[in-house]
Each structure stands twice: as C-alpha cells, then as structure tokens.
C-alpha cells in the first residue's frame, strides 16, 4: 500500500501530534506514506471565504503533484481533506472554476485525483480483519465518543465520506481496538472552530455543547480526526470552564493516537504529551504511561 501523503500546514504547528501519530501508525501497519515534495497550503477557510477560484487553485496545486506521483493522495487533516475534495468537485462541476484553476496553475487539471482520509484507507484498503491482527494492546472497554464534526462529512456530495448524518467509520475502528462506543447525537455537530480567534465565544459555547453531549453519554474521551476540532475542544476547555463554570476534564485525542496505543506504540511517539487536557484516564486503560 503506497500513497502520496499530504500532511497539511497544521502538521508542523498546532497538530504535530496528529502528524506524528499518523506516521507512526502507518509504519506499524506497513502503509507507505510518501510526502508530496514542495506541497503548499490548501487555502483553508480563509481562501474559500475570500475567493472560490483562489481556493480551488490552491488545493489543486497539491492534487496535481499527487497525480504526477501516480498514487492516491492520503490526508489525515479533515480540513485539508475537505478542501481537496471540494476542489475536485467544483472543478468537475464548473467550467468556470476549471478554467480559472488551469490559468492559475499554468496546467490543466480535471478534478480526477483520488483523495482519501487516512481512516478510509485503514477501513477499505487494509481492512478491519488485518487491523485486528495487529492489536496487541486492546483498549479494555474505554468509553469513547467518536466525533466527526463538519469537514469529513459535509458537503456529502463532495466528500462522500460516509453517512453524513450518522457516520460510523471511527466507531468501527474503536470496535476493533476493543474500545466501547457510546451512543450520542453530537457526532456531526459543529465545534465552532472556524471562529476560534475571530469570535472566540461562539467557539467556546459550541465546543462546550459538544463536550457536554459526550459527557452525558458517559464518554471517557472524545476521538477526533480534525485539528480544528481538536484545538477547539481541547485547548478551549479552560475557557469553557471560566465562561460556564462547569468542569469538563475531557481528553480529546486523535484517532491515530488511540490506534497507536492499541498497536503498542509508546505514547511519547504518538504526541500524547502535547495534549492540553491530560489523557491520563485514557492511558490508564491501556496501561501505557507518557
């Protein structure tokens, strides 16, 4: 299994733990991730709010590089995944966007480069039976709330990730790891991450609502696949406590971090020491120590 890997800007900043754990898990599972040379920013939310054509062109620059490598592009950041998928969709459906992208890149691009989230290749290319065989450190019934947020599932016609209202890919991975999935209704709600700096209170209230739902369902941790969600839910917990006077203490970890633990990789290599809210409760169930 060989892929062109797009880390995304946050891999070297706010989501180093996401990137580190993804690489460690891939290595343990024999998945070859070849980092795209010279990759550039996908444009994130700043580009699409400013100019759709610029947004599609920025994302396409990387899609074209992956195409030249002749491999599916794998993304672990849900936000970059979303922007790349939306660029493909818009290029296929709009002549105007297609022309503008060709002009910006000096090269034509037809929107055909496959883009996959890392969890999709675990499920569909590696397969759950093969993954199960590699689990040496089961989660022992750790109560987990799988949180998808927006970027993986919306807009459904562009991402085609899973059922947009009730996705279950993360749950099926947790299941294989020996964790216990809690039933909850917040999994595709928005964390408010886009306004984290611009309208912080909106983010704090939205994220508190998400954590509150997971807590009410009995979750011991929330599992995410998006750096925007991770930062909002984890780093903003102190603000939630201040604003709402409630205590949360809810660990918010990447699916690849949890998977790494189950595969027997040390927490340090998986970036567990970078989390703001202590993941001690999670590590205890797997007998791992940071």
């Amino acid at each position: 299994m060989k892929y062109a890997y797009y880390p995304g800007c946050s891999a070297h900043s706010t989501a180093r733990d996401m990137h580190e754990s993804c690489l460690a898990v891939a290595k343990a599972l024999g998945i070859e991730l070849n980092e795209i040379k010279g990759w550039t920013c996908c444009g994130a939310s700043a580009a699409h709010q400013t100019d759709r054509k610029l947004a599609a062109s920025l994302a396409s620059a990387n899609l074209l590089l992956a195409k030249q490598m002749g491999m599916d592009m794998v993304v672990n950041c849900a936000a970059c995944y979303n922007r790349s998928k939306v660029a493909n969709y818009e290029i296929i459906h709009s002549e105007e966007i297609r022309q503008s992208v060709a002009d910006c890149l000096g090269q034509s691009y037809d929107g055909s480069q496959p883009v996959r989230h890392f969890v999709e290749i675990l499920l569909k290319d590696l397969g759950l039976p093969a993954l199960r065989k590699k689990i040496i450190n089961p989660l022992k019934g750790l109560k987990t709330a799988s949180y998808y947020g927006c970027y993986l599932v919306r807009p459904p016609e562009a991402t085609g990730f899973d059922d947009p209202e009730n996705p279950t890919i993360l749950e099926s991975l947790i299941d294989v790891m020996g964790g216990e999935n809690v039933e909850w209704s917040g999994k595709v709600d928005c964390c408010g991450g886009m306004q984290n700096l611009t309208r912080t209170e909106i983010t704090v209230r939205r994220s508190a609502a998400v954590i509150g739902m997971a807590q009410a369902a009995g979750a011991e941790c929330i599992v995410v696949a998006c750096p925007m969600c991770q930062i909002s839910l984890d780093v903003r917990q102190a603000d939630m406590e201040k604003l709402l006077g409630k205590h949360y203490r809810m660990p918010v970890i990447y699916i690849t971090q949890l998977l790494g633990l189950a595969l027997g990789i040390s927490p340090k290599k998986l970036g567990f020491d970078r989390l703001m809210v202590s993941p001690a409760a999670v590590l205890k169930t797997t007998k791992a120590a940071v």
Binding site: G38, W39, C41, D51, K53, S57, L58, A61, D103
Partner: peptide, 16 residues
C-alpha cells in the same frame, strides 16, 4: 514554515 514551492504559490495568487 519551509519546504513549500513558493514560486508556484506566488503565481497562483498573482493569477487569481
């Protein structure tokens, strides 16, 4: 950050 193809990105911004 380092490692990006800067010439390419500048062209995109200019054309856009």
């Amino acid at each position: 950050p380092s490692g990006a193809d800067k010439g390419r990105i500048r062209r995109i911004f200019k054309k856009a």
